[in-house]
Design a protein around this nucleic acid. Structure first.
Length: 616
RNA sequence: GCACCCAUAGCUCAAUUGGAUAGAGCAUCUGACUACGGAUCAGAAGGUUUGGGGUUCGACUCCCUAUGGGUGCGCCA
């Protein structure tokens, strides 16, 4: 017997085939709709019979019985199949099938090859984080970075070639004021110490010194014009601002496990904008029209956008972010040959992207360009206690760096408290980094809602319940069992503990700490017996469903939920069933469960962008 | 004014996108072999899913409506 990676898909196609074999009327229209089920009903349930029977005025239970009769015998060896309620078909995996799945899927690469069909041979450009240069990142910048990175990893896991593009806000009117401030008040010492904080200060000074209608504002505008005209002095300044900003951002990204392939900010598209105007007015009929002196796109078929314009060129002839976003999409389609584009921003830009996508569709169709699948992934704003979104302008916003520091500090205190002397300080600090940063990442990823949330230290830094530390603790305990069993391979050396491995592609297979080639327990394992063993195994085989759900919806919280439940099932098992018993067959099957739980927890956590630990 | 998003246990959130008796964590209460790591586990209690109507075999989910929050709407990004 050989079980496939995704059992839900297997049952789905088996039912589909059974519909044909049973001679159901209009069988191709029958969609089994197999999905994971509440464990009390089974492992998977098919709901499709109900809708199918209803539409044709058939008795759903009779249809279900026909389908069951037509199921191949081999499938009956995998699972018990039963009809329940009004016409649900339930599949309950047999212990032998569970064991077989666990034996088969024994490494991250096997899991990956199982999952990597959905986006195989596709290229996806993911645009996330995308902060403005010359400003520090604050807590409001966290979500795009963390969610975006998780989406990248999910897409990669399901077969895509992913291009990470940081679409920096590195162009625009603010640079006139910044240069104005810089030339007057720049403090070399401060620039050397904390350059981005100094740029922020200079921008504020420049901004405050150039109120509307003032001569100073004209001077600031003149600086901007010089910059845009290519003045060497101002261009050098601007370049310096960008470099300094990127270096500061990278310090944050390093802590979050993020590395961009490109930093193609708005400035990159400066020389690609004329083509946008040309093409938008040259279609027949023209997509873009003059209105109140500006060049705009209306969408007559849309209730709102038939009157709400998409402004692609301002009255003064200058571009805006609609223009650069159009150019950006074109570049991603033409230069990267993107099959899909994902842009991760907060929900307030929903209108803009809806207009952008409508415009892209018409424009690309008129020009016969290939249109990538475009997803605007939105999330709710992070707000202050007053319910208002946090803004850079409001001054006392919490810096992202400070949030990460605080998380590590709190985690360090706990690590030290829990492990009095037996872990040396450098390792305790490393553990604190993984736990603290992971807690922050997970706090954001584990929640789906597009509604806003109020920023709270305790919320971001919670260490109990459905949090990263709970999952990391389960991982650490499994490592501990393998150490005790004498199956753990020692860490390669002190400078590279497994916690340093934070992507799936690190060499050395860091998440398999036991000797995979000598998995004698996998061969010796007998079918599972206790309720907690079986419950754990049933959860393990659902990993493909969690991946599919999270990837299809681009919502990492589905994976978080799955991993949390898996860790819970493991903890229950761990508490109820002793792994290292004297009975070799019992010990073997329980070690197998531990090994696969470890594999899937670590694989899943890495997909979310978290690092894992062997002890904590 | 015109739209969009949101409202679920005391608190913070889930609910596989229309499926079976709405689930977790925190907080509260009661327990666990002197623990293969107690950063754990078992159990209890907690609900008219904001109110009202509708659609159907079935609704937290879809439609209408009221209320209360948030957001966007011509030259910021």
């Amino acid at each position: 017997m050989r079980v496939s990676f995704n059992l839900a898909a297997e049952f789905d196609s088996a039912l589909q085939a059974a519909a044909v074999a049973a001679g159901l009327a209009d069988a191709p229209a029958f969609s089994p709709e197999v999905r994971t089920a509440d464990p009390k009903h089974g492992d998977y349930q098919a709901n499709g019979v109900l809708g199918y029977a209803k539409a044709r005025k058939l008795n759903p239970r009779a249809v279900a019985e026909k389908l069951l009769a037509a199921l191949p015998a081999a499938l009956r060896e995998l699972a018990d199949v039963a009809i329940a309620g009004p016409g649900f078909i339930n599949f309950t995996l047999k212990p032998a099938a569970l064991l077989d799945w666990l034996r088969t899927h024994d490494s991250a690469s096997h899991l990956r090859s199982g999952a990597a069909f959905e986006h195989a041979n596709q290229t996806w450009v993911v645009d996330y984080s995308s902060p403005n240069t010359a400003k520090q990142m604050h807590v409001g910048h966290l979500r795009s970075a963390v969610i975006g990175e998780a989406i990248c990893r999910l897409l990669e896991f399901t077969g895509a070639r992913v291009i990470r593009d940081n679409h920096l806000g590195d162009w625009g009117t603010q640079f006139g004021k910044l240069i104005y401030g810089y030339k007057r008040w720049a403090d070399p010492a401060k620039l050397a110490a904390d350059p981005i904080a100094e740029l922020e200060r200079l921008y504020r000074l420049g901004h405050d010194a150039t109120p509307d209608g003032s001569p100073a504002l004209d001077e600031a505008r003149a600086e901007l014009v010089k910059l845009q005209a290519g003045d060497p002095g101002n261009a050098a300044l601007w370049k310096k601002f960008s470099e300094v900003s990127l270096a500061a951002f990278q310090q944050i990204y390093d802590r979050l496990g993020i590395r961009f392939d490109h930093n193609l900010g708005e400035s990159f598209y400066n020389d690609k904008l004329d083509r946008i105007y040309r093409e938008l007015i040259s279609t027949n009929p023209p997509l873009a029209v003059e209105s109140e002196g500006a060049l705009v796109v209306f969408h007559p078929e849309h209730p709102r956008f038939k009157t709400q314009p998409f402004i692609v060129r301002k009255t003064d002839g200058a571009s805006n972010y609609a223009t650069t976003d159009l150019a950006t999409a074109l570049y991603r389609a033409e230069h990267f040959h993107a099959d899909g584009i994902v842009v991760v921003t907060d929900f307030r830009q929903a209108d803009h992207f809806e207009q952008l996508i409508l415009t892209l569709k018409k424009w690309f169709a008129a020009k016969n360009y290939r249109l990538p699948e475009f997803h605007h992934v939105t999330f709710g704003a992070v707000t202050g206690e007053d319910g208002k979104a946090l803004k850079t302008r409001s001054g006392d916003v919490i810096k992202l760096k400070d949030l990460l520091d605080e998380a590590e500090a709190r985690a360090l205190a706990i690590v030290t408290e829990k492990n009095p002397e037996d872990i040396p300080e450098p390792e305790r600090r490393e553990i604190a980094r993984v736990v603290g940063i992971g807690a922050i990442q997970y706090a954001d990823l584990s929640q789906n809602r597009s509604s806003n949330y109020v920023f709270s230290w305790d919320r971001m830094l919670a260490l109990d319940g459905n949090t990263a530390p709970y999952l990391l603790y389960a991982v650490a305990r499994i490592h501990s069992i393998f150490r005790r069993a004498g199956l753990a391979s020692p860490p390669p050396n002190d400078s590279a503990p497994s916690s340093h491995c934070h992507t799936l592609y690190d060499k050395g297979g860091c998440h398999i700490m036991y000797d995979n080639g000598a998995e004698s327990f996998a061969r010796q394992a007998a079918p599972l017996e206790t309720p907690t063993e079986i419950a754990l195994a049933r959860k393990l085989v659902k990993f493909p469903d969690a991946i599919r759900l999270a990837t299809d919806t681009l919502r990492p919280h589905f994976l978080c939920l799955y991993l949390f439940e898996l860790a819970g099932d493991y903890s229950t098992f761990n508490n109820a069933d002793k792994v290292l018993t004297d009975d070799p067959t019992v010990r073997a099957r329980r070690l197998l469960l531990c090994a696969r739980t470890l594999l899937i927890l670590e694989t899943g956590l890495h997909l979310l962008g978290l690092r894992t630990l062997t002890r904590m």
